[in-house]
Nucleic acid binder design. Structure first.
Lengths: 247, 247
DNA sequence: TTTCATTGCGTCGTTATGACACAATGATAA
DNA sequence: TTATCATTGTGTCATAACGACGCAATGAAA
């Protein structure tokens, strides 16, 4: 906190939108802030000799426990008015740090937005030293967000939608074995619209990127759907050209 | 040069890839650097109270003379090794500025890449104070580029390709009146592949975003092609959904 | 006046798409 | 044990879109 000015690249931060999929819902990992009902995206600063990607990877490792994480830079947020200097100066005061006017945290910050795709069950949510909790929240039921984090989240989702045919989004978000309805719900959530069940299945199968397993998912009421897994080699090859047809 | 440290956001720059279309070729506006055969993307720094977009707009205005320019942020380049500190320290020496070790220009810089689309004939190329010339270069015949500018250009082109169905790329790059073969060549250059002339025309017409004029383009050898202009209202409406089918 | 590359418009067979029908499944309730 | 019923697997069908290609019209240059 005191040495940050010497350690970090000045006026630069990053924020991560961490997506997970569970209970047939797209979720985002958020940090609950102290003394308010506000939530924040996991973020951090960039060491002076660190790449942006390394910094993001480090932050993501700390919040999720996952080392090898899929992430993509998607936008820079640089509005001069985006910083909440009052928050930082209050926080410094509480920490007993004399908040000189030119304290490194009180300057303007540009932030680089990253989105990350993780397998929900592999994550161990871990708060950082500015937060009191780290929890998954349903994408469509998110409370008050800090600063411009709502805007950052929105842009991340928009990017996810655009890259659906070019990034291994299903592969990174779903567990090894999943059902066709689960995959479809994921697509529907990201796209924000309903898709026809039968046409979805036909198209997905036509790509040749799925392997249908002998097993079915027992346990739910009604007919047990087959389990699928990705044929990773073919998936990646198909993504190079983009999944044809689009959604 | 001396006061930059106080005026600008520290360790932050931006670089612009300015695309234009002329002589049936996609071109990029570059700056010729002094004393070398290297070229550089037009770039600049961000004032402490300026948005990134405003800074890019300012830079673009200075290099092209155009005020109302179309630009899009596309990527941040943050490799710690990307800066060429030797270049800056030499330059400072030549300018007679004592290059203290902690001179603001000698620190690590993160740069935000913007691409801009301009109507070629509206541009008045103007060098900045670090360059001896400002010229259009053919996209496929570009000389040595400074630092990581080749990589930045590559990423810009990749982004352009991805956004072809979502941004008014034809509208921003072509003059008010243009022929179908010109539009097709633009698409072919961006996509990097040949398209069937007749199918291209059919698809373009089916979008309903073009208005065929009564005039033809006389002067070239062979049959005179019709001139077209964009129906801007319909174009923009179609872009919201993305031009269907893709290329 | 002829030549010829280019342009405008159209054809044709195939494939992809959207909308929908129907039987099979399997946990739950009767 | 049997009936129920939402859900799943598979298929059909008419239409639209697509890729490949043919051919006549044009207009500057030979």
């Amino acid at each position: 906190m005191e040495k940050g000015g010497k350690l970090f690249h000045p006026g630069l931060s990053l924020d991560c939108v961490i997506f997970g999929f569970h209970d047939n819902q797209l979720k985002v990992l958020l940090l609950k802030m102290e003394h308010t009902d506000h939530w924040a995206l996991p973020g951090g600063f960039v060491y002076k000799d660190e790449t942006l990607e390394a910094a993001a990877t480090r932050v993501l490792q700390e919040r999720t426990g996952i080392n090898d994480i899929f992430l993509q830079q998607f936008h820079v947020f640089g509005d001069p008015a985006r910083s909440d200097r009052k928050y930082h100066s209050n926080r410094l005061k509480k920490l007993g740090i004399e908040a000189e006017k030119d304290h490194w945290l009180l300057n303007r910050f540009i932030t680089v937005g990253f989105y990350a795709l993780v397998e929900f069950s592999h994550v161990t949510p871990t708060p950082d030293n500015t937060s009191v909790a780290c929890e998954w929240q349903h994408l469509h039921n998110i409370g008050n967000l800090f600063m411009d984090h709502r805007q950052i989240l929105g842009k991340a989702l928009e990017t996810l939608r655009q890259q659906l045919n070019y990034q291994p989004i299903g592969y990174k978000l779903l567990p090894d074995k999943f059902t066709m309805p689960e995959l479809q719900t994921l697509y529907e959530t990201i796209l924000g619209k309903k898709l026809d069940r039968r046409n979805f299945q036909r198209r997905m199968n036509s790509y040749g990127i799925l392997r249908r397993l002998k097993e079915t998912r027992k346990g739910g009421a009604h007919k047990a759907p087959y389990l699928y897994s990705f044929n990773l080699r073919k998936y990646q090859q198909a993504l190079l050209e983009g999944l044809q047809g689009g959604w």
